[in-house]
Amino acid sequence: MSTPEFEAFLARLYTDEAARARFLRDRLGEARAAGLTEEQAASLAALDAGALQAAALSFARKRSHKQHHAKRRWFGFRLH
């Protein structure tokens, strides 16, 4: 069931708010449009929407935190 295409679809769901909204409106349609198998599409259709939103928010916070720290390190390097 795992393929690079399936992982890419998950990565987009976890990071792209617009893609996530489209998916939650039409789960099977979006999965099929991405070329996923029926088995993969069925597994996505059963996804817990609340858990998906919570995970996406958590990932977004992690990315923001990393960007903040990268900036801090970069400025620190420039100043010292």
């Binding site: 992982e7 890419a8 679809f9 998950l10 990565a11 987009r12 976890y14 990071t15 990932f59 990315r63």
Partner: peptide, 10 residues
């Protein structure tokens, strides 16, 4: 995956 960085461990 697919050129997308999730930014954390999935």
């Amino acid at each position: 995956a697919g050129g997308i960085e999730i930014g954390h461990m999935a």
